[in-house]
């Protein structure tokens, strides 16, 4: 037997540290870095949590609510199985729902993500997003490359369920290369954040309240042509739907070879995390 020397103690400490900096998602224990959100830790570990308004590297937003996960309260778990068998506690443990993109990972969190209940709730949210805008995929040039659509497939959404809003929203085709079709905007603010945080510009903002909230362009005329936007800005490419488009690029990729013909949404979103596009325009 060896007495624990200094080196050994260090190792123990490190192991201790490692144990403390883990969370468990659907039974899988994964590490996280202090300050990291649940979704970033999950994506880095290859666990897909559905999301639309999140992009690793941009500040969190928390608007789409697709990344909702349950944090299970396990403070009463000692001897649980015995007491459960005796019927002293109910099968359903207490849990609270949080947005994985804004909630910091904390040591020992026990998280449920890929459950039928959460995915059903996520499907309803996706249906709300579809019925709130005009998502007529058959005539949308983003079809097959659209994350909203791909998430709908992932969640097995067959219909919009709710009465459609059929909003009338302004289309901005003033710019020579970039256009904005607000009918499909889901107000995720990815473009707003990308423009400020990555492009060093301030092209977009959200104006209005409630169902009247809409994306506006920060130029004197309110039109894209008078803004600083450029075709290669991250703000143009980060849009998860067909709201910000590059002109004369539509329908170039044959059906069968579009992003989500070839890949599932989880593969694409995990890849985006591993190879962030920021800085490599």
């Amino acid at each position: 037997m060896r007495r624990p020397g200094r080196a050994m103690m260090k190792t123990d400490n490190r192991q201790d540290q490692a144990v403390r900096n883990t969370i468990t998602i659907d039974g899988r224990e994964i590490p996280f870095q202090p300050g990291q959100t649940i979704i970033d830790a999950a994506l880095e570990a290859g666990i897909y949590i559905p999301h639309l308004c999140h992009r690793s590297g941009l500040s969190p937003h928390g608007s789409c609510r697709l990344c909702m996960v349950d944090i299970v309260d396990r403070t009463e778990t000692l001897g649980d199985s015995d007491r459960r068998r005796e019927g002293k506690i109910q099968e359903e443990t207490r849990s609270r729902s949080v947005a994985a993109c804004t909630m910091p990972a904390t040591a020992g969190q026990w998280i449920r993500n890929n459950t039928p209940e959460l995915n059903e709730a996520r499907k309803v949210i996706t249906q709300m997003l579809f019925t709130e805008g005009n998502h007529i995929c058959p005539s949308c040039e983003h079809s097959g490359n659209c994350t909203l659509q791909a998430v709908a497939y992932y969640l097995g959404m067959l219909d919009g369920h709710f009465p459609p809003f059929f909003p009338r929203r302004e289309l901005d085709a003033s710019h020579p290369t970039v256009m904005l079709d607000r009918d499909r905007c889901i107000l995720c603010e990815l473009c707003v954040r990308a423009s400020r945080e990555a492009d060093g510009k301030n092209v977009f903002a959200i104006a209005g309240r409630g169902t009247r909230a809409r994306l506006i362009v920060n130029s004197a005329s309110g039109m894209l042509v008078d803004s600083d936007i450029e075709m290669h800005d991250l703000a143009v490419h980060v849009c998860p739907v067909g709201a910000i488009l590059i002109k004369e690029q539509g329908y170039r990729v044959p059906i069968g070879q579009r992003t989500f013909d070839l890949h599932q949404v989880e593969e694409i979103d995990l890849r985006k995390t591993i190879l962030p596009e920021m800085g490599q325009k």
Partner: peptide, 9 residues
């Protein structure tokens, strides 16, 4: 039939 489709434009 599901959401009005292209005619709903």
């Amino acid at each position: 039939a599901i959401n009005g489709g292209v005619p709903a434009l």
